[in-house]
Write a protein that binds this DNA or RNA. Structure first.
Lengths: 352, 352
DNA sequence: GTGAAAGCGCTAACAA
DNA sequence: TTGTTAGCGCTTTCAC
């Protein structure tokens, strides 16, 4: 029986060697038992090792393992946004995180949250990416610019598997992407309004720094065009996700010579703000003005009136992203990149 | 000049030894330069090392460092809830996470998110806590029970510094705690309604499994009692945070022989749901019925009517928790535990 | 089926 | 001021 002098009566955590000593086997055997391989062990040894583990309350040291295996069972969740303070607060991104987190946890992976403000210095992130701390990354992209590409470049250079959500990365990185069809959703929403007979349709546009705001506007624009309805700049307001501007926007819209009979808001929160303000002017929704949202957040269904909106399968997107990054990790980053586009769906409720 | 055979022309990441070789110094010197100590180095050596680092694009291996130092610059954020799927979705906890995350990031710490469903098997968590992966933990507690205590017990046994948020842990763990004064907030809200002349005050009670729901009810109860207003069970509904029940609750309340003239909701989301439903019955807020919320989420101010509610300094609580856990880590868990109670504040808007 | 030992990359004690 | 080296705890190859 070999003995370890090092850990004689140490107050610190027991090591694998301690377990080996107590069980009367070598450290290799303990490792084989713990990891169920790569070599077999006798039933008797297994039993003795397990008992020793229990007795010492032994737990493997993740750093030592990570050092040896170059695997940490950790995925970095990168949120690249103009204001990552909203990382958790925005219902919207929160739902994606929920699906992602839950699924990764199921598979025994840990999650390191990495908020990045667009434009911030990437030194720290670069260090993190190259520190062998992460097996893979899931990046929520919100826009396309050289700043965002610089981030992706860092991930690429660190040779870490990466799955992008919401916006597709440039092809040359070879990253997988999971997006959803914003444009089709917006088109469908506006087209529905047109089919209901609306001709004067307003749009509260999102923050144009975000690619999704542009696409939602594009969908609005295309639907009008395809229906032969002239585009009127006066009906398009906002250019922000911030709902506090709605207080000013609504009276402006109402004061138009030819005011809108319907409003397509680029988010549910905006739609709710619009309806709240319309109430001030005793304008009834949907009788006087119809309102459509986008996102289908939890409150959309509970609001009065329940909101007609575009449903994005955010939780499913998060879950799929988790599956995908795990596949990439499994394949040691040699998997052919995948590009999934989730469909969105018009949910008819009572605001139209 | 010493040379490393190991890394001659390896395709993998450069190591500290590679840097040493290139700079023509020993690995110790490189370490001293990188860590700015514990020993001094000549300016010339510093310069050569820095250049070599840049040339090789060297980044330290976090696992090797962690193994050596028993420090990982990582804090675990544990969310102990009945439904941790709501971890990100609940505005409420999200704001705390925002403050926490931002502050820790500033200080160069990483964040591992650990959602725990109350009652789930703690084996995995125990392994994580004992894996030398976390320097400390911040735990959001939502209730008091043996299940929660078992979790704290694991953290205690793992000898990891811990700061609890929202609910105080049992004294014997020696953990710091940051809470806020729910009870006083509820008391103040209800007392304000009483001072406005209300005598029939309803309460939408939160999920009683949560300690905060109990305290908010208690505040309501005490305020009535102190004002000599008899408590009426028929006016207290809910017992859930789920706003979907409000649709049924509001007509019940309105149908009472002696219906309430004011409602104290235990959350803003509930308050908003109440107002939305009251509108269905053409009941005006605040003219016919006054409504007070709790939490002061972002939407509270933007809602129509803007919500009178109790403001909880959630972001500040998160920030303070970050500072506190860092102090505990710094002090190697020998800091005297602290117990902070943040005051809450009645914010008067238009729903009363 | 098992033991001995090398080595992952780093820090810091020891020696010079 | 610098170089040498032990050792953190683990996995896995090599030898038996």
């Amino acid at each position: 029986m070999s003995t370890s002098k090092r850990h004689k009566n140490s107050p610190s955590r027991p090591t694998l060697q301690d377990v080996a000593d107590l069980a009367g086997v070598s450290s290799a055997v303990v490792s084989y038992v713990i990891n169920d391989g790569p070599r077999g062990t006798s039933e008797e040894a297994k039993a003795r090792v397990r008992e020793a583990i229990k007795e010492l309350n032994y737990h493997p040291n993740a750093n030592a393992r990570g050092l040896r295996l170059k695997r940490t069972k950790t995925v970095g969740i990168v949120v690249n946004d103009f204001d990552p303070m909203k990382l958790f607060i925005a219902q919207y991104s929160a739902m994606m995180l929920t699906g992602l987190t839950e699924r990764l946890k199921e598979k025994g992976y840990y999650i390191l949250v990495i908020p990045i403000t667009i434009g911030e210095d990437l030194k720290n992130i670069e260090a993190l990416l190259n520190s062998e701390r992460l097996d893979g990354t899931v990046v929520r992209l919100t826009e396309h610019s050289s700043l965002t590409d610089q981030l992706l470049e860092r991930i690429y250079e660190a040779k870490i598997p990466c799955v992008c959500i919401e916006e597709p990365p440039a092809e040359n990185f070879g990253f997988s992407a999971i997006t959803y069809d914003d444009l089709a959703g917006a088109y469908e929403a506006v087209n529905y309004l047109i089919n209901q007979g609306h001709r004067r349709i307003g749009h509260i546009r999102g923050d144009l720094r975000y690619a999704s705001a542009k696409r939602r506007f594009e969908g609005y624009y295309s639907a009008l065009k395809d229906a032969g309805i002239p585009y009127d700049d006066a009906l398009v307001r906002g250019d922000t996700w911030d709902t506090s501007i709605i207080e000013g926007v609504v009276p402006e819209l109402l004061a138009l010579d030819n005011p809108p009979t319907a409003i397509f808001a680029s988010s549910d929160l905006t739609a709710i703000a619009v309806i709240n303000q319309l109430r001030r002017y005793r304008v009834q929704v949907p009788q006087d003005i119809a309102v459509v949202g986008f996102d289908d957040i939890e409150m959309a269904a509970q609001f009065v009136p329940p909101l007609t909106t575009i449903h994005i399968p955010l939780v499913e997107i998060g879950e799929r992203a988790a599956d995908l990054i795990l596949e990439h990790i499994e394949a040691e980053n040699n998997l052919k990149p995948d590009r999934l586009v989730f469909p969105v769906e018009l949910v008819l409720r009572d605001s139209v």
